[in-house]
Design a binder for these strands. Sequence first.
DNA 1: CACTAGCGAGAAAACGCTTCCTGGACCCTG
DNA 2: CAGGGTCCAGGAAGCGTTTTCTCGCTAGTG
Lengths: 335, 335
Amino acid sequence: MKERRRVTIRDVADAAGVSVATVSRVMSGSHTVNSDMAERVRWAMQELEYRPNGAAQGLASGMHRSVGVVLPDLSNPYFNDIIKATYVGASREQYRMLVTEWREPGEELGVSLDVLSRVDGLLLLSARMDIDGLRDLAARKVPTVLVNRVELGVDLPMVAVDNFSAMLELCQHLASLGHRRVVYLAGSPSAWQNRERWRAVQQARILGLDPVMVAADGTIEAGFEATDEALSHDPTALIAFNDLAALGAIARLRELGLRTPADISVTGFDDVSLARFADPPLTTIVSPKAALGELAWAMFEASLRGERIEQPPLLRAAFVHRASTGPARTSRSRV
Amino acid sequence: MKERRRVTIRDVADAAGVSVATVSRVMSGSHTVNSDMAERVRWAMQELEYRPNGAAQGLASGMHRSVGVVLPDLSNPYFNDIIKATYVGASREQYRMLVTEWREPGEELGVSLDVLSRVDGLLLLSARMDIDGLRDLAARKVPTVLVNRVELGVDLPMVAVDNFSAMLELCQHLASLGHRRVVYLAGSPSAWQNRERWRAVQQARILGLDPVMVAADGTIEAGFEATDEALSHDPTALIAFNDLAALGAIARLRELGLRTPADISVTGFDDVSLARFADPPLTTIVSPKAALGELAWAMFEASLRGERIEQPPLLRAAFVHRASTGPARTSRSRV
DNA sequence: CACTAGCGAGAAAACGCTTCCTGGACCCTG
DNA sequence: CAGGGTCCAGGAAGCGTTTTCTCGCTAGTG
């Protein structure tokens, strides 16, 4: 039943005929250790298949070699792409990743704090917690980087995409196709990205757009369900918060016998990997997800080292015209 | 610079006027503690905003309240859906999730072992390591469950989908549409799921299919790239290892001016969330991803408790006919 | 009423590391 | 040649918990 006792640093030390302190030094790559002693130690580690106990290391040194990733929705492929990029950086530095999802808004700070005693810092993806929560975190002086959220007056490194400009560009495209009456299928009201995107859509009045906001969320289901209300405003185009919502909307439109983009145009945001395979392929914004993830890691690493890094500029996202948008229908034939 | 010292169990004990042992007992919900004492302790914890140190708990108790999830590819949305379901179980039990991706085959055992000192057990998703690796893990008597891999002769709980039957059903569908010459766009040869699926495809000779295997992988790019070689066998249908590969193949076909399914049918597997929005919507197998994730957690939890759980049967996956398959083209018009 | 269970709480010993401190050996300098 | 540095390795003190052990009470029994 009881497996062979775990081999500890003690065992290695004994086998190599040195002290545990020396073994520890060898592991940390300290240079103040005689080279053939180090060799013996390494040999013993091999021989005994020694694996340092992470919890003990963490307790003793205060460093856990892992980063906590906190996000709103594990099943959203958008986050995957970011995490993926972050992960390559992390694993390069032998860092592990503790992933935590919060479901209820309000849980977010709690789960973040919760995980703090097991990680060296936090990556907050699309954080929606209120500014006091962010300040709380910032005050703890724990390396924390905000991804896809910028909040002036919070002393935390942030990396984000220029949602505003990108969305404006998208609106420009719509305007040039003759669209006027458009509905914005909103994301979560507490999401910074949502606020930015909506701000841009409103700004686009200047381009001739006449936008209305309809509450939804960044999921397929929410996009699907919000579509009926959106149609009540008789729009020629739907500007969805993200690709998922756009896909949901298109599905509902199809159910209703409306063609995209002949009857109504739909746009997405993010360019999740499957967006270009959709029917129709989504006109959307290509978020630099990999760059975002890499930069997030770089910032994290820097603040781990205590370097005072300057805030990088917002990342640019490219507009891509695919087949889900077309010229605005002119006749007001529908309810 | 130095923030206020972390509050420890010691501080709580002092504030409540009890011993640390008592505080610990209160936390663990031990019944052998006087109720107003417990109340004082709880009050003190609140007051001081005490958060137990995870590393210390892990070291002292040997329990880490986290589960290690090991998978081949973080960016594959298929895994997300599984993880998502697993996560709800885990978080219900206050378990955290340490996610690890291995890139090079051969890394897999290493990263698994690596993470073992920080978690109470492992969830191996689509494990591709060799059987000796699995045996090694099994011998350690650490709770470990294999997801999407079944390996007789390895003493580990496993949860998986009945790939064989599902694929056979899919082949039946193809056969009934008059397909004969088909190409199987393979997944990784070391993946159990790939072996099962291919086994089924071969079995489908009995239904009149004449399958050829072409090496690919379960990614969009691999599906895309393998398509040209697949076409050299002049098939009327492509059976892709999974949805991603199918999408890649369809994209390449379109580039070549071939329509799906008019010129050639394509099938997927898994039914990732976006598969039904694809152009054309994918005929595929609906893997019960949520059920898989939940069951995986349930098995994990059971083996955590040391319960000797019996192996559950394979989960059934449903075939779904969408628009990417149609009657086999009869003329052999193409190269 | 004396004696023994039984129970609840504190003291203290782990848990497996890191790191500070100490001391011996060696080398250099005056 | 004596004294003072330097360098390297070991001893030991934590790190913040859990858990075993112990001990003083209370209550129950004959």
